[in-house]
């Protein structure tokens, strides 16, 4: 692993008496694609939430990004520092067009002027493999896959160091997942570290260089994808006893 860009140290999140995330610790190397797996309700999205502060931070523990502790920062400041995320459910600004969505992100997250944002939008849309004929469409009029592309493009336009993707393949067809696979590898080749939560194992195993598996809020296994899927505890807890 190269230099750690993210360090999560004993992160916990409680909701009343429920501990949704329990003493989770891991590091992510710069330039890595790092996978996070686990059954429904295992705390994957909660982990993303407390890392990004959206909508809450950790109850205890530390989150370090690029050597700086960020777990008490306001959420928008975390995003502006270069830790940018997407959401499991379709997130969109329904009244904004594709270009306007990118403009907002470029100006507020990337500190670009409106004219710089317009230029940058073209290259980001190309990287996200977005149909250039549909840039004036309202976000609400896009297909599920296009919304995912836009969500990724709107993160990329601010040139994040780390892109955190929460189940980007949910709701996609097999050909679309194949395109997403190529897209993620392309983004990573461009120098962006990726954290990927994903239920579609074929995608997760295909692109991830390392993996953790969460179960009931705690890390069950971690290591290389090939080793993790052979772990009997993972097979029992996550895969129902067989791969």
């Amino acid at each position: 692993m190269t230099n750690a860009i993210i360090e999560v140290v004993d992160a916990c999140k409680s909701f009343g008496g429920l501990k949704a995330v329990k003493d989770v610790s891991f590091t992510v190397g710069a330039g890595e694609i790092f996978g996070i797996a686990g059954p429904n309700g295992s705390g994957k999205s909660t982990l993303f939430n407390l890392m990004t502060g959206i909508p809450y931070g950790p109850t205890s523990g530390e989150i370090r990004f690029d050597g700086t502790r960020i777990d008490r920062w306001p959420a928008h400041a975390i995003a502006r520092s270069g830790l940018c995320r997407t959401f499991q459910k379709d997130a969109e600004f329904p009244d904004l067009t594709v270009l306007e969505t990118l403009l907002v992100s470029a100006v507020y997250n990337g500190d670009l002027s409106a004219s710089e944002a317009a230029n940058e939008a073209q290259s980001v849309l190309e990287l996200a493999q977005f149909d250039p004929n549909r840039v004036d469409m309202l976000s609400s009029e896009l297909s599920v896959y296009e919304k995912k592309q836009l969500m990724i493009a709107s993160a990329l336009i601010s040139k994040p160091k780390v892109l955190m993707l929460d189940e980007p393949a949910s709701g996609l067809t097999k050909p679309e997942i194949a395109k997403l696979d190529a897209l993620l590898l392309g983004v990573n080749r461009a120098g962006v570290t990726i954290l990927l939560i994903e239920h579609v194992l074929s995608l997760l195993l295909s692109v991830s260089q390392r993996l953790i598996v969460l179960n009931q809020g705690a890390i069950l296994a971690q290591g290389l994808p090939a080793d993790v899927v052979k772990d009997p505890a993972v097979a029992e807890a996550y895969l129902g006893g067989g791969v």
């Binding site: 990004t52 959206i54 306001p74 928008h76 959401f87 997130a91 600004f93 507020y108 969500m151 993160a155």
Partner: peptide, 12 residues
Amino acid sequence: DAEDYAVSRGIS
């Protein structure tokens, strides 16, 4: 329209 998404794009 999407407060969390807006925050994730650096908007306070």
